[in-house]
Design a protein around this nucleic acid. Structure first.
Length: 498
DNA sequence: CGTGCCGGGCC
DNA sequence: GGCCCGGCACG
């Protein structure tokens, strides 16, 4: 039945139905109206309450509804103007073909025929809640209370509104969802987010991108890592950097660079950083290693700095992905907002490659390696010097001591570290001559020795007890006066050297 | 536990 | 610098 169809349409239509025109009313029964019945019509509904009440209540509501195509159902309460007076009535019949409505006006006891457009609908909020089923079942029934109920179902207007609302909400939700889902991904087009429906597509697309980059998979990490979530701190210096990057094509630095794109800063990246761990994207291009906060940023970097315009879009895009990797950096100090020099920037940070790409290996090397040597070079020398002093204290020729005693090894290992130092004093050099030779012969073990030796120095510095007899043993405690001086002094025996 | 001797104090 | 000794490591 057409009514069903129209009803459905009506639901969708936002328009309220209002039909009468003031001037018209005077005509009485004849109704003229628009031919179009298909439009969704919202009819006021009246649940069989008293007419009077309806009149009072509905006098205005219907008026608010814009005149338009609508459908009237038997039993539906409407208002019509007759002889200059408005009367409430019930729809008896709605002739779609002629677009006329037959209305029963109780007050006059008349059946009036009016054009649809001249009929004003009485609408009540109550009707909104009426379920569809009711409507469906009552369609064909023109009389009886059932008809009245039917009317109620027509209340689509409000419902429709809710629908619209839902749609809006959904849209909003989708946008939000996409935002939250694809934190880092947001491409420079972040501004697009503002846009409506179309955006959605892009967003979803983007989200896919996100997972692609691996950020989505790492979300677990974030949740695990607790800590102060640091929403992107103000990066005031970013702007300048950005400009420099943009304008200086040859600009290549390994430094820690904040994301140049202001849009990206406030986005997902901050969110992801639930704790102090932050995700960065590192350029894998040889000798570059640039760090950026966002995928977009790194992509752009790779594109502009390394790939250039040589290749076509597709190829370039693939290349972009290839030349950067995601890394998690543990940022203990909140210094992230301040620029750092290349050397200091990476050291305190824990760089943890997230992506399985082989290139990631490269990342760790620089940051981890650099601090190590420096630490050793600083600590080792001190111990070394101390040892040397000890040897000197005993006033024994270094050439003899070193080869003879098991300490040799120790000495050598220690010596290795100092060699790293550019300048050795003549004295030191002399005492080290032996060990230095060793070191030159086996440069490859240098690092090992360096690492192992420090601990030894502490405990191993003590001279191993010699096998030879000592003065004490020889002469006995009774003849202490016959001991060598060293023995008397409880020093290393010089008479019976091992 | 005896011994070797380092590290350090006293003069 | 000579002398002495507490204390540790080693066997």
């Amino acid at each position: 039945m057409a009514s069903i169809l129209s009803k459905r349409l009506g639901k969708r239509s936002l328009l309220g139905a209002r039909v009468c025109t003031p001037s018209l009313a005077a005509d009485g029964m004849s109704i003229e109206g628009p031919g179009d019945l298909t439009g969704g019509a919202h009819l006021g509904v009246y649940d069989g309450g008293c007419l009077k009440e309806c009149l009072e209540e509905s006098a205005f509501p219907s008026g608010n509804l814009p005149p338009s195509r609508f459908k009237l159902y038997p039993g539906q309460k409407v208002y019509i103007t007759h002889n200059g007076t408005e009367y409430a009535g019930l729809v008896e019949q709605h002739n779609h073909v002629d677009d006329e409505v037959k209305v029963l006006v109780f007050e006059l006891g008349l059946h009036l025929c009016r054009k649809t457009e001249d009929v004003r609908l009485a609408e009540t909020p109550k009707t909104m809640s009426i379920p569809m089923e009711q409507v469906m079942s009552t369609n064909s029934d023109a009389s009886s209370s059932a008809a009245q109920r039917m009317v109620s179902r027509s209340i689509d207007v409000p419902k429709r509104r809710s629908d619209a609302l839902d749609m809006d909400e959904m849209m909003a939700a989708m946008v939000l969802t996409s935002l939250s889902c694809s934190p880092i991904v947001q491409s420079p087009p972040g501004s697009d987010l503002i846009a409506a429906p179309q955006v959605t597509c892009d967003l979803w697309k983007e989200s896919g991108d996100v997972s692609d980059s691996g950020s989505s998979t790492t979300s677990g990490h974030w949740s695990v890592e607790c800590g102060a979530s640091t929403p992107s701190p103000p990066h005031t210096e970013t702007s300048p950097k950005y400009t420099s990057e943009v304008f200086n094509a040859s600009h290549v630095d390994e430094g820690f660079e904040t994301d140049p794109d202001p849009f990206l800063l406030d986005e997902p990246a901050p969110r992801k950083r639930k704790n102090s761990v932050k995700v960065m994207y590192k350029c894998l291009w040889p000798n570059c290693g640039k760090l950026l906060r966002s995928i977009v940023g790194i992509k752009r970097h790779v594109k502009t700095q390394h790939l250039g315009d040589g290749m076509d879009c597709d190829q370039r895009k693939r290349e972009e992905d290839f030349y950067y990797t995601e890394v998690q950096m543990k940022d203990e100090s909140e210094a992230e907002s301040t620029p750092r020099s290349p050397s200091t920037a990476t050291a305190p940070l824990l760089i943890q490659p997230v992506t399985p790409k082989p290139e990631t290996q490269v990342l760790e090397v620089p940051s981890v390696e650099s601090p190590l040597p420096s630490a050793l070079s600083q600590s080792a020398p001190g111990s070394f010097w101390h040892i040397q002093a000890d040897h000197a204290y005993q006033a024994l020729p270094s050439t003899i001591q070193i080869p003879v005693s098991p300490h040799i090894f120790t000495s050598i290992s220690w010596a290795a570290a100092p060699t790293a130092l550019p300048a050795l004093s003549p004295i030191r050099s002399r005492s080290l001559s032996f060990s230095e030779q060793q070191q030159q012969q086996t440069p490859s073990i240098k690092s090992q020795l360096i690492v192992a030796s420090p601990p030894r120095a502490a405990s191993g510095s003590r001279k191993v007890r010699g096998e030879a007899k000592k003065c004490r043993k020889v002469y006995g405690i009774e003849h202490r006066d016959q001991w060598c001086t060293a023995c008397r002094w409880k020093k290393a025996c010089q008479r019976f050297l091992d």
